[in-house]
Design a binder for these strands. Structure first.
Lengths: 155, 155
DNA sequence: GTTTAATAGTTAAATAGTTGAACTATTCAT
DNA sequence: ATGAATAGTTCAACTATTTAACTATTAAAC
């Protein structure tokens, strides 16, 4: 790939990704509702997807300090969304899981997000969006690789 | 498009977009540096891109209340990144522009983001990423349309 | 032309998210 | 047994956001 083409592609990617991020962020804020904040939704989703999730794991995934996780988990625990369970073998570890109420709110938000995504996915034809998703999923793999290399370097 | 295919596409989009957003967010946090917060970068970028930007415009773009904009602009003004200029004809309006120092930091962050994006765009071949960007840009247009319809409804 | 509406932005209190540094409790290594 | 490493918490300081009340200015009605 020549210099000029690469520069053009990078410029287009940064421009469109900034715009989509801003627009999607603002739409989600307006459409998805205010039961919990978006950080709390991200936390619910990651705990739900991870079997036996810990504060350390959340801190690593979101690239924040563990004290920030303690704070957000405290607020969500106060609202009755999250359970804490100590590991019986290693009593330093605290496992995080969703309470019934936590799951209810999570599923409700997932349904609303589904509707929102459906409303614009349906404006594309299937072949187009399939090809798009294939590359998007490959981008995801590339990012996972970069992230894993960074984590290895740190340890 | 049949029900089943649409559901599959929406599910794939929500999954990959959540994962990429989380990963990219964490990489940007670790790579781009801590001169300013990401909200402040978004503010710098939007002011730079908009001729004669106002608080009202920023509040609309980011879907937050105007008082939140006042607060962030105050902090950035304290750091010498932003200038305020009153409109001579309509003295209610305050135009926001970047100071020289604000532009310097903005350009520096843009260069770092360019390097980061380049490092993963170059892992794709040109045809693949071109096709991807075409659909991504169309998605951007669709989102702009949705946003404009929402703004019209409100007024 | 004066009163009323609407618009642009600010202030202040309350809540949420984040960092950095010091801390407790527990496990691992030797 | 003792010292290092790991998992998580606490606290002070800061940033980001909302809600509601506020100032200043312009536009609209009458």
């Amino acid at each position: 790939m020549c210099e000029q083409t690469l520069k053009d592609l990078v410029d287009r990617y940064t421009a469109v990704s900034f715009s989509v991020t801003t627009l999607a962020g603002s739409l989600v804020k307006e459409e998805i509702g205010s039961e919990i904040t978006s950080d709390q939704y991200y936390t619910l989703k990651t705990i739900y997807q991870t079997g036996s999730c810990t504060s350390t794991h959340l801190a690593e995934v979101f690239a924040v300090k563990k004290s920030a996780i303690t704070a957000i988990i405290n607020r969500m625990w106060d609202k009755g969304l999250i359970k804490r369970t100590r590991d019986e073998n290693d009593r330093r570890i605290v496992y995080l899981t969703l309470t019934e109420q936590g799951e209810e709110i999570y599923f409700m938000l997932e349904r609303r997000i589904y509707k929102l995504v459906e409303s614009f996915i349906s404006k594309f034809d299937e072949a187009e969006i399939s090809q798009f998703l294939k590359t998007y999923e490959k981008l995801n793999e590339v990012l996972i690789e970069i992230k894993e290399n960074k984590v290895e370097k740190q340890s």
